[in-house]
């Protein structure tokens, strides 16, 4: 039996396939402009790989979860991330998920989600913010996080993306070096995450999921800000889809 988890986020869609108890495949693709279209591409791709989607159990999550017609159930990304991290790590942690359009902090206790906070309505502190700022500096996100490590510890004070962008532009105008500006940009995100973390019953272990977990420099800077070593896993970007696939396995 195949259990499939599909996590359609605002920028990327993540898919995990379990063959009974074991992960058999993980893949990701850009969400693009239509999540309905994305979910169709995913289905084709799964079928090309020899998986009979109609005969499998499918759970969809993420903001595009309602656009997956062949999913048996939709479950929110909060529960799926919790389930996925429990699988990857097997211990209680506080999960930080920096997504495209929101940042979530999720507390796992005895393997269950007991608390969560979401930061949204505004791009500040999200992946979108980082993407926009990287564009302004003319680099990609990986380069931005690496440069930030070298920079001076300055801060970008505007919480609003639009104002933060003009702040960055004026820093460029003043001749501030790009590393320090990058540092300021990262600081504004890690600072936001840090204050959200403090509203939570904090565990001593912080675990990062989402696309940023592949950026070592970012993890280093986040650890410095939070004051504990932030952990992650090579499959952490798939935490949501892994969780969805596991929950698909619990269906029946």
């Amino acid at each position: 039996m195949h259990y499939i988890g599909i996590d359609i986020g605002s920028t990327a869609a993540k898919v995990t396939v379990f063959d009974n108890e074991k992960i058999m495949d993980n893949f990701t693709l850009p969400t693009g402009w239509s999540s309905v279209e994305t979910s169709r591409i995913i289905k084709n791709r799964l079928e090309d790989g020899g998986i009979e989607v109609e005969k499998s159990k499918v759970v969809a999550t993420g903001y595009g979860r309602i656009s997956v017609p062949y999913a048996e159930k939709t479950i929110t990304e909060i529960s799926c991330h919790g389930e996925g991290v429990k699988y990857l790590l097997g211990e209680d942690v506080t999960i930080v998920d920096i997504g495209g359009q929101d940042t979530k902090i999720i507390t796992l206790e005895n393997g269950r989600v007991t608390d969560f906070i979401m930061n949204d309505k505004c791009a500040a502190g999200t992946g979108k913010f980082l993407e926009l700022m990287a564009n302004t500096l003319g680099v990609d996100i990986k380069e931005l996080t690496d440069m930030a490590l070298e920079g001076r510890d300055i801060s970008i004070t505007s919480m609003c993306t639009v104002f933060a962008e003009s702040e960055v532009i004026s820093l460029i105008g003043q001749g501030t070096d790009r590393s320090s500006i990058s540092r300021g940009i990262i600081n504004s995100i890690t600072g936001r995450v840090n204050s959200l973390l403090h509203k939570q019953v904090r565990k001593d272990k912080v675990f990062l999921t989402g696309g940023l977990c592949e950026m070592e420099s970012f993890i280093l800077l986040l650890s410095q800000k939070v004051g504990v070593k932030v952990e992650t896993h090579k499959l952490a970007r798939y935490a949501g889809s892994i969780g969805a696939a596991i929950l698909a396995g619990n269906l029946e």
Binding site: I75, T76, E77, I78, S79, D102, R112, V113, M118, D120
Partner: peptide, 16 residues
């Protein structure tokens, strides 16, 4: 303007 986000929160809370 935030109907989607409110829905996610409500559903997630009920799931927990």
């Amino acid at each position: 303007s935030d109907t989607g986000q409110v829905k996610v929160r409500a559903e997630a809370f009920v799931e927990t």
